[in-house]
Amino acid sequence: MSDTKIKIDSLYKIFGNKPKEALEYVKQGVGKDELLEKHNHVLGLSDINIDIEDKSIQVIMGLSGSGKSTLIRHINRLIEPTAGNVLVDGSDVLQYDEATLRDFRRTRTAMVFQRFALMPHMTILKNVSLGLELQGKKDDEILNSAMKWIEKVGLNGYEDRYPQHLSGGMQQRVGLARALTNDTDILLMDEAFSALDPLIRKDMQDILLNLQAELHKTVVFITHDLDEALKIGDRIAILKDGIMDQEGLPVDILLSPKTEYVSNFVEDVNRSRVLKAKHIMEKANGSDLSKGMPVDENDFIESFIDRVVAEKPELIVVQDSDKKNIGSLTSKRLSEVLKK
């Protein structure tokens, strides 16, 4: 396990006039509905604990109103918590004074928004330059970085257009370029792709994964779509009514959901399409793996299931990109996983 980049520690957020008072009720176990009915406060988040690994993509998932946006906004302190701590690289974000917080937002975090939140009065170039301009960087430096990222997200030629002229997918690429131009180590994405059509959405997911393979940022990615979560996330946290129901590897969430809410979420998923060989393999432990049917660790089950049915191999050998054998799979295990 590598280092923790962002540590969220017993975080509570209650919306209302007297959140501190309401906090006591919540700590005594009062739920979201009761808190609203009896005490007229909205429970945003209750006792959230997550350690977000450095250079990983942490997905936060949940239905509408479950507190996802509230949670991600605590990381750059767009929202102040009612109780709890947010630590980034071990330093407490909540202790920052105004200037330190501003500096932290400028250089450490960048955010991509669900409805893009581009500036309608600025050209694409100006939008992408925004972060660096606020920092007062030199003009040519700003222009260079902005053009680089505009190109990377495939929008060259559109620099002088205004956001209104672009389709949703293009606008969100501007949003992504705007965030990446700041060159921060943390990227916060609040349902960044939810407003897009399925095809464009898939495009954007691929763009993100390709960029991540190159940039290795710590990404906090919010979605209410399980397929997206499974595709993108290194780990997934599931929120319900402000409470974290489960947090773990995608495969664990899929194969052993802890609560009914989570199992409802995962029951309709086509597992052969979202699980990769590496998710369900048994790690190599010295036994002989030379005789099995080889598959790549990143192959989805779907892509080799037909071969398994046809060839009926005794063992399926999972290899990494260097063709090194890293694990194995029996057809029994395979059918178990798919049947569940």
């Binding site: 960048a110 928004f113 939140a117 500036m119 009065h121 606020l134 916060l188």
Partner: peptide, 27 residues
């Protein structure tokens, strides 16, 4: 002025003067 634009400019670390002159006044 659109709250989301303000949130965006805040998230990039704008001072309140920058927020006023670059986003609020033009919009």
């Amino acid at each position: 002025v659109d709250k989301e634009c303000l949130e965006a400019v805040d998230s990039f670390g704008a001072t309140s003067w920058q927020r006023l002159t670059r986003v609020q006044m033009p919009l």
